[in-house]
Design a protein around this nucleic acid. Sequence first.
DNA 1: TAGTATAATGAACACCGTTTAGCGATGACG
DNA 2: CGTCATCGCTAAACGGTGTTCATTATACTA
Lengths: 202, 202
Amino acid sequence: MTAAQRQRVRDETRAAILHAARQLFLQGDGFSMRQLAARVECSPAALYLHFKSKDELLQELMRRSFAILFEGAAAVQDRAGEDPVERVRRGMHGYVRTGLAHPDEYRLAFLTTLPEPDGTRPPNAAFERVRERVRRCLDAQRFSPPRPQAGIEANTSLIAQALWSAVHGVTSLLILRPGFPWVSREALIARVVDGAVDSLVR
Amino acid sequence: MTAAQRQRVRDETRAAILHAARQLFLQGDGFSMRQLAARVECSPAALYLHFKSKDELLQELMRRSFAILFEGAAAVQDRAGEDPVERVRRGMHGYVRTGLAHPDEYRLAFLTTLPEPDGTRPPNAAFERVRERVRRCLDAQRFSPPRPQAGIEANTSLIAQALWSAVHGVTSLLILRPGFPWVSREALIARVVDGAVDSLVR
DNA sequence: TAGTATAATGAACACCGTTTAGCGATGACG
DNA sequence: CGTCATCGCTAAACGGTGTTCATTATACTA
């Protein structure tokens, strides 16, 4: 068996572990290395041949959660000739929708105290899309800059982060407190998104 | 020793346990019943004479976190003759400030999957204050109802929940992601609050 | 004083994350 | 073919966890 072959099977079992780990985590009730090992049908120690620790494994899962969420959010395509403000609005709706469609991934990605993995690029890429849309609005003078004396880049960041905060607020609350007597999830989401956006348009 | 006396000392040790638990939790690194027992200088089993389980103990801590946060938020007093919109705005700023001043309590209260204790009254009381302020704005026609066809109570709830979502968004992100390159915490908070509020005033 | 309720505990159980010594198979080389 | 190194893997152990339970010590009551 050549070294390349060995590497391939190594990668495969690593992938299998991650697959099982994802299943186990999404299943909800607890997540232990021993349970994971049982599911993969190997000894607990074997897992440590592929991951330094449980945290590292969870970080990899976190990375993948980011990827899934990013993919969902990126599915919101800008339409040709669409109003730039409307692009921002639809982007935010897409964010919330994606988060609610993948609540466990959202929890893993954004509601955890785990040290973020270095490769937190996907969400940053997603964040860059938001910035892009916001910048368009500022350029087209559809948004009034909240801090006119600051540069356009600073205002872009500020607005993007504020928008993100708002949508993260609804998303996380709806995920974490499903029992709360929300008057209407849809109306609430719309209200938050519109609130964040409308206050910007001049 | 009378029954009342026995009850009193029982309550005292219960309080002492909770005090130590709070310290231990806020200290940050881990929280185990055995560590707690060591700090209280009793056996781990003794803790179970006062709390059915670790979860129940944490729920009690959660209740107290709610109380602390509520107290902080309630410290925002409405000034006489103050503009009702300004009351809402200051109330929201107070919420964020309180949350950031007590990040661990905030985590315990709002960023946990623990089953909420039944007596989740404090935050509801706090929430009632928000509703009150919002209702005033609607009554005074300073806010335009987002869903005019719905009743005023429904609109009050909707707005209050939307406002809460927005401030919770900033608060939780600032607590959970202190490493993120926020452009400016103050500006961000102001932006989110103003965004949520300004879009409502007619 | 005998009996009883109560507080507290030590020891155990079943689990957890992680490390390590060792085993068997496989391939390389003389 | 025989030897030896390498690699994948595991059983067993270590120290930790939440929780239970039989047992003891203590203090009140009859």
